[in-house]
Design a protein around this nucleic acid. Structure first.
Lengths: 233, 233
DNA sequence: GGCGTAATAATTGGCGCCAATTATGTTGCA
DNA sequence: TGCAACATAATTGGCGCCAATTATTACGCC
C-alpha cells in the first residue's frame, strides 16, 4: 500500500504527452531531450521517460543518437515532400470510404467542428486551433471503415507535426484551412468522393507548402546541447 | 575491459531477429513470448529482450498485455482485409514512381531475383522463398523515389507477415506469385505503370485470399501459456 | 593569445534485484 | 466427484545504481 496505485496506468500515456509537447513546439526540432529535464517536467521516473523516448524514436517523432541522447527529429525538405506525397496518397484514398460510411449525425458534428475552427481562427490560441483541426480530421477518417488506413494516416500526420507544420505559418494558410473544412463538409453532404479527395489533396499541399516557405533554415543542428532556448512545459 | 565490446551494437538488431523468427513461424500467432525463453534463445539480457519486445509492440508485430506479457499478434479477418486494402493503396501508388525511377541495371537484378524465385519454388526452403520474395519487392519499392512510402509499405507488410501470410499457403499460390514477378519485370521493361499497378494489386489480393482460405480458425488464443508447441530457433 | 591536451563534470545506458501479479497445483468441503 | 479457496510456483515489470561515454572546463605549451 505504500506505492500509489498509479502503476500500470500511464505508461503509454507519457509518450503521448511528450509527443504533444513536441508538436506544441515546447521542444523544437533539433533540440536535445535530456532525460533529467523530462523526469522533472513530467514528474515521471527515469525508466518511464526512457520507455516513452524509445517509443517515440520508433515512431520517428524523435531521433536517437547512441550515447548522445534523443532529439526532436529534424525533417529535411526531401523527407517533408515524401511525407506529403504519401499523405496525399493515403488521405485521398480514404475519401470513397468516408463518403460511403458517413451518416447525417457525423456530418453535423463535422460541420460543428468546422464552425468551431472558424471561431478559433478569429479568437483562439494556436493550441485550440490545432486541437479542433485534429478533431475534425480524426472524426472524418474514423468513418473511412478502414482502421489500419486511419492509423497509418495518423502516424504520418504526427510525424510531420513533430517537425514544423502544426502551427499555421501564416494567417492566410489558416484561412485557407478554414475554408477547406467547410468545403469538405459540403462535398460530404453532396456525397461527392472525387471532390472530397481533391479538397483533401489541396489541403495537404497548401499547408505544407506554406510551412516550407516560412520555415527559416535551421542552424541549430550541430549546436552544443544545453545552450538552446527551451520553453517551459 | 571485463565486458566484451559487443555493447551498443545489436540493440536494435534483436528486435529484427525476433521479428524474423516470428514471420518464419518459429512463434505462432497467439503464442506467448516468454522473456526467459527469448533470453536464452537469442543469448541476450533481459533488458535487451524487453526493449526489443516493446519496439515490436509499437510496430504492432506483437501485442502487449499488462502483467501477462507479449504475444504474437493475431489478426482477425477484418483487420487482415484492412491491411490488404491499405497495402493495395500504397503499393499501387508506388508504381508510377518505380517506372519513373528504374534503370536497366535494376531491371536486370529484378529479373534475376524473379528467376531465383522460380528456382526456389521448385527446390528451396520456405525461408529461401520468403527471402528472395522480400528482396524482389524491397528492391522494387526502393526505386520509387519516396523513402517514406517505401518504409510505410514495409511496415504494413511486416505486420501482416507476423500473422499468417508469409509462407505461401498452397503450391498454387506460390506459382501465381512466381508468375506475377516475371509479369512485373515485363511491365517495367515496357515502362507501363498502369499495368504494373494492376499486377501489384492482383498480387496482394491473390496472396491474402489464399492465406485466408487456408487459415484454420485458431483456438489457441485463450490457451494457457507454456503448453504450446514451439519450434526451436 | 591561440590551440592541443588532460582533468573534471554531466549525461546516457546496461543490468540485476525484488515486489506485484498471474498461473498452477493442492487440499478440504459440499 | 465436482468445485471453491488457499498455498505455492513462475513470470512480468518497476526502479535505482554505477560503468561507459561524451561534453565542458582548466591547464600548459608553443
Amino acid at each position: 500500500m505504500t506505492t500509489r496505485p498509479i502503476r500500470q496506468r500511464e505508461k503509454r500515456a507519457l509518450a503521448s504527452e511528450i509527443a504533444q509537447a513536441i508538436h506544441m513546439r515546447a521542444y523544437r526540432p533539433g533540440e536535445w531531450l535530456r532525460q533529467i529535464d523530462l523526469e522533472e517536467a513530467f514528474k515521471a521516473t527515469r525508466f518511464d521517460v526512457r520507455s516513452a523516448l524509445d517509443e517515440l524514436a520508433v515512431r520517428k517523432t524523435i531521433e536517437h543518437v547512441p550515447n548522445r541522447g534523443y532529439r526532436v527529429a529534424e525533417i529535411d525538405l526531401k523527407t517533408q515532400r515524401a511525407i506529403r506525397d504519401t499523405r496525399i496518397i493515403l488521405e485521398t484514398a480514404a475519401a470513397p470510404g468516408i463518403v460511403a460510411g458517413i451518416d447525417a449525425a457525423t456530418i453535423a458534428r463535422l460541420s460543428e467542428l468546422a464552425d468551431r475552427f472558424s471561431q478559433a481562427v478569429l479568437s483562439g490560441t494556436r493550441i485550440e486551433q490545432s486541437e479542433i483541426n485534429s478533431a475534425f480530421h480524426h472524426l472524418m477518417y474514423a468513418v473511412s471503415g478502414n482502421p489500419v488506413l486511419e492509423e497509418t494516416i495518423w502516424g504520418l500526420r504526427d510525424r510531420s507535426r513533430g517537425s514544423s507544420v502544426t502551427v499555421w505559418s501564416s494567417h492566410q494558410a489558416l484561412l485557407n484551412s478554414d475554408r477547406d473544412h467547410h468545403a469538405m463538409v459540403e462535398a460530404l453532404r453532396a456525397g461527392d468522393a472525387t471532390r472530397l479527395a481533391g479538397l483533401i489533396a489541396h489541403h495537404i499541399v497548401k499547408d505544407m507548402i506554406e510551412a516550407q516557405a516560412h520555415a527559416q533554415p535551421s542552424t541549430e543542428t550541430s549546436q552544443s546541447r544545453g545552450s538552446e532556448v527551451r520553453d517551459e512545459v
